[in-house]
Write a protein that binds this DNA or RNA. Structure first.
Lengths: 187, 187
DNA sequence: GGCCAAGTCGAGGGCACCCTCGACTTATGC
DNA sequence: GCATAAGTCGAGGGTGCCCTCGACTTGGCC
């Protein structure tokens, strides 16, 4: 439901695309905090033009991330379709952090509780609700510690963001230890 | 072994102390990245004077942290004296991160691999060697996963730094899950 | 082909931090 | 007391980022 504004002039449309492409690249490479000047430079557009199209940094993220976050729905659906609750839960975590590891910007989006655009927030909420279901199922199956909560997931996600940032090759090891710690103990 | 320079004038000595005190406070409160101007302000001293006494930010950390890091030796010794290898190891982690949680600056020191002063580095090395022993013992006792390494500790420490930063009240929960994941599985 | 709204440009002002340096002040030894 | 080395001060220059705005350019329509 885009507000019906008059169509962009051809050159403006082109610049907008160049800016989006540049921002997407730089967010993925360097995270959400790249200087806007760098985005303008990579897009071969002046800083003034950048501000014309995207008055705030958040305008970039709302333009870019809803699509990326759709990947969360994909892995969520995949996990929900898995009939083994533990495998579903653990597999979801693996998939989620794989996505994060591939995109520094996504990593940042998930790690911070930014005052994000509604679209981004709702994508995160969908993700959260998937996880909620996965957690409940795994607990009911008696495979996940009964006291695990969504809040713990948020903590984990921020911790993983950090781990991914400083050892992109070792995060799986860290995660697997943690996940092992999450198994319900059979006394 | 301080290099024998002529003694400070009384006012200079006073200012030096005020600066150290201010820096210690602010590092603990806000981490290693506080603006030097803030330190000068809290010390009620001009920025020029600050630079006279501590030409670089690192001069502050080398003056402040060796003492703090001595606490690492204390908890290390305590753990080494514990005859139960698993309890020693897990207890050390708990103690270590308690220290980190109490001091944002220490948290930063341990989280980054700063080009630190020799004194700071050597304190960290001593800490590392304690941990190394604790790990070896716990593995030999068959209670810690056999593949756990010091490098994993570094990753954990950085992750915990992050966890502590964003949920100072919940880090124990996170740690305990992780530690649980570290137990050797008895198949 | 010419008009003009739409778009582009980049200099420049603001801010927060860094650090330096020359003019001023003062503790201290005589 | 006084001379002077030692210390203090803070304005100001540098950097990197933010964002604005008025002068210029251009696409698209008649």
């Amino acid at each position: 439901m885009v507000t019906a504004s008059r169509p962009l002039r051809a050159d403006a449309a082109r610049n907008r695309e160049k800016l989006l492409a540049a921002a997407a690249e730089l967010f993925a490479e360097r995270g959400l905090d790249v200087p806007l000047e760098h985005i303008a430079r990579r897009a071969e557009v002046s800083i003034g033009t950048l501000y014309k199209h995207f008055p705030t940094r958040e305008d970039f993220t709302t333009a870019i991330f809803p699509e990326r976050l759709a990947a969360l729905d994909v892995i969520g659906a995949k996990a929900l379709a898995d009939s083994d609750p533990w495998h579903a839960f653990a597999g979801y975590l693996e998939d989620l952090y794989t996505l994060q590891a591939e995109d520094r910007g996504l990593n940042d989006v998930l790690a911070r509780d930014l005052p994000n655009a509604p679209e981004v927030v709702s994508a995160c909420h969908r993700g959260t609700s998937h996880v909620g279901t996965l957690i409940t199922r795994a607990i009911e199956a008696g495979t996940l510690r009964a006291d695990y909560t969504i809040a713990d997931m948020a903590t984990l996600t921020r911790a993983m963001a950090q781990v991914i940032r400083d050892s992109p090759s070792e995060w799986r090891r860290f995660l697997s230890i943690y996940v092992e710690g999450l198994r319900a103990r059979t006394p």
